[in-house]
């Protein structure tokens, strides 16, 4: 699949900007507040997309109820988008037979023909610390998602482990489960010690064939690192 939209991603990877150049009649759907600049020829409409049920699903996926629709009814124009987090933007072309599972909050924009649903992940999601719901993109067309830090694709063929906090997206031909690090399993004492002291507890174990996108930083880790440096009010 090649891209249907004419786009470019500049200033990568820390402060990237996505520019999409819509041709006359094309539409684009984006996360609210992501727009930075827009040609006057384009129209923007805020509203529910895909009916209330779909929208509710998106909400539970951590996405906002409102999707901004950008269209070019009268002629071509360009729009720039910036994600909220400091990190790279990645393009994925849907339509190779499967869909893409997306971490909540990773969605930035998609073109026509793409469907977005919330998928309940149950206990797997709960233990991964990433919420019980993931987004699943299907159909065919262009999808843009963003991570924290750089975004690194990994081709899985067989099996692979990724720390739960770094999983950004993966193709749905991969099966996954949340588990402890494989070396920790025998000998419960060592396992618990590593879990609590080593901080290397839970991983996503992927199996099958497909691609995983990993973000190179984790917001939670960053907040933990910066916490001791926060300004504190002196108590007297």
């Amino acid at each position: 699949m090649t891209a249907q939209l004419d786009f470019s991603i500049d200033h990568r990877p820390d402060f990237p900007l996505l520019q999409v150049r819509l041709g006359a009649g094309q539409s684009l759907f984006a996360e609210p507040a992501a727009m930075v600049t827009m040609s006057p020829a384009l129209h923007m409409r805020a509203g529910l997309k895909g009916g209330l049920g779909k929208s509710l699903g998106r909400m539970f996926g951590g996405e906002s109820l409102i999707v901004n629709t950008f269209s070019a009814p009268n002629g071509a124009g360009a729009i720039d988008f910036a994600p909220a987090a400091l990190g790279d933007i990645h393009h994925y072309a849907l339509g190779n037979g499967g869909g893409l599972m997306l971490q909540r909050g990773a969605f930035l924009a998609h073109g026509e023909g793409v469907t977005l649903d919330a998928k309940w992940q149950g206990a797997r999601g709960f233990f991964s610390g990433n919420g019980m719901v993931m987004l699943r993109a299907g159909g065919s067309g262009d999808l843009f998602f963003n991570g924290y830090g750089a975004v690194m694709p990994i081709d899985v063929d067989g099996g692979y482990y990724v720390d739960t906090g770094y999983v950004l997206a993966f193709e749905d031909t991969l099966s996954y489960r949340v588990t402890t690090m494989p070396g920790l399993r025998p000998g419960t004492g060592q396992k618990l010690k590593t879990f609590f002291l080593g901080g290397e507890g839970l991983v996503c174990q992927f199996s099958g064939r497909g691609r995983v996108w990993v973000q190179t930083r984790q917001i939670g880790s960053f907040l933990g690192w910066i916490y001791p440096f926060r300004p504190v009010k002196q108590r007297n």
Partner: peptide
């Protein structure tokens, strides 16, 4: 913590 995010409907 449960839903991952309290924006939106939650």
């Amino acid at each position: 913590v449960l839903a991952g995010d309290a924006t939106g409907l939650l």
